[in-house]
């Protein structure tokens, strides 16, 4: 590839595909559905660098914890998200960092 070629633009899911994860079968992140119903901002939807939180058709929060980069931003942005460390050895495993 030419050194003058622009950097190929990748979507977030393409970029997450480059990251090594060891995926657990259980989520280490939990929302409180009662509080979510009352929440107007729903900052979890946009504040997460990996966009782990999404809304389904019924306006429920769906958590794709498998792509969590474990920064903890959602826990600071929202006072009701329950954040637990994934099981030992599971979750994100950076090759560069």
């Amino acid at each position: 590839m030419s050194i003058l070629q622009p950097l190929e633009q990748k979507t977030l899911s393409e970029k997450l595909f480059l990251v090594r994860f060891k995926t657990d079968t259980e989520s280490h992140l939990k929302v409180n559905p009662e509080k979510c119903k009352e929440c107007k901002d729903k900052s979890c939807i946009y504040i997460c660098p990996a966009e782990v939180y999404k809304l389904d058709e019924k306006e429920n929060i769906i958590i794709s914890y498998e792509g969590c980069l474990e920064c903890g931003t959602c826990r600071i942005a929202c006072e009701f998200i329950e954040w637990m460390n994934p099981k030992g050895g599971y979750g994100v495993c950076y090759r560069y960092g």
Partner: peptide
């Protein structure tokens, strides 16, 4: 994608995405 930054990244390939507080 800022014009200044874009030129510095030419010929590059994204290898990893990461996030931290």
């Amino acid at each position: 994608s800022h014009p200044v930054v874009k030129k510095l990244l030419r010929g590059g390939k994204t290898e990893e995405l990461s996030a931290k507080m």
